[in-house]
Design a protein around this nucleic acid. Sequence first.
DNA 1: CTGCAAAAGATTGTTGACAATAAACAATGA
DNA 2: TCATTGTTTATTGTCAACAATCTTTTGCAG
Lengths: 229, 229
Amino acid sequence: MDTTLDPGLGLRIRRTESLTSLIRRELERMIEVGELKAGDRLNENALAAKLGVSRGPVREACRGLEQSGLVHVIVNRGVFVREISNREAAELYDIRAALYALAGRLLASKITKKQVTELRRMVREMEEAADKGELNVFYPLNVRFHEAIVQFSGNGRLLSMCTSVHREMHLFRRRTLDMPGRMKISNAEHASIVDALEAKHGDRAARLMEDHVLKSRELLFGPLGTPAD
Amino acid sequence: MDTTLDPGLGLRIRRTESLTSLIRRELERMIEVGELKAGDRLNENALAAKLGVSRGPVREACRGLEQSGLVHVIVNRGVFVREISNREAAELYDIRAALYALAGRLLASKITKKQVTELRRMVREMEEAADKGELNVFYPLNVRFHEAIVQFSGNGRLLSMCTSVHREMHLFRRRTLDMPGRMKISNAEHASIVDALEAKHGDRAARLMEDHVLKSRELLFGPLGTPAD
DNA sequence: CTGCAAAAGATTGTTGACAATAAACAATGA
DNA sequence: TCATTGTTTATTGTCAACAATCTTTTGCAG
């Protein structure tokens, strides 16, 4: 298989985007999809060869990934896809809860009818997926629902932060226990959140968003505080 | 003036740390201090020559800085120290408020007597600085006070996020109006925060932290929402 | 066979050179 | 005089080679 970065289209693309950013996105994709698993080392030579470029842009891309927390670099040893410990995952849940609460509060004060409709549509689709027990339909909708709320909140930096946190959490091994009734419970919370948003009740929306995230956290780590590791 | 990166010590240092990270810290310092101002372009050749290295590590360092939001890169044009608009600064204030609230909540549940003493000492020193009207003493103490709370909270990722947000906000032109009585008011809030922490009253600590940040925001932008630009 | 030491190999860190692009400037015509 | 086009210069994007470091293998003594 030839996974080169479009050498044919290269001439057109290269004008508006550097190889570095293309490679960074490609690496993010590989990590997201699982082509690169937590703990894997990124071999610069191999990657450069595989993508049909030299090591320079690959190294630059890795430096960006390092800062965004997706990989960590050990001098003279290489860059490794980060492994998220239980403890770190728990920390990220707390942060996500705080950021989502903010998103809810901000959005409640400015949400439009159109946005409410959009969110309600997602909730309805998730409801169908939950009824049929289709987790592979529910899950991406769930992601998009949360993303939409953060995006609608209008705080650009908040959006990029949430995206970053979300990417990092993906590195965490344990998937949320897909308990049978979990989808319906989760979606009921979604409905309440949209209600609060529509009512422009900022405090309630914030609290519901926070609880929604912390409930996921509890499902993984139990009701008490941070796990040892 | 020779601002080379210690070519003498280089040999020793290079073993445990790459030039890239040294340069990134140096650039962060230059931005922090104001040697590089918002909007300035970072000339790769000039920087490389000044630091006595080649362009490679400089470029890698810039990619890290880009991801952390301190600079932005325009393809084929160069990397520029980011300019923070009023709007973005306001967004960052909101985020900081949410993160600090989390820090307060977390710390309240686990603060030690020793940490309370430490915080109280800082408040006392700030009180003295406020009495004498010494802003240049008050300000760094103020920073350390907030940093300490975040650090004591025990959430590592939260600490790095707050540091990052703080750095970014430094790029914002308008300094907080140093109104005459401002320091004393601010420090009274600090005292209340420590009280809430000592009482292990998480909700109250969270709310006080949030209000404390949002009050700074109001001082800059007024009581209503986000400024246009 | 095991443990250690030294050499060979692989990989990262760094550099200088070349190619591609954008900015600055000069020349031309209206 | 001004706008436009062509040319030169400066700067960034990319690459391939070299140096430093780490890992693995091999050889040898016990």
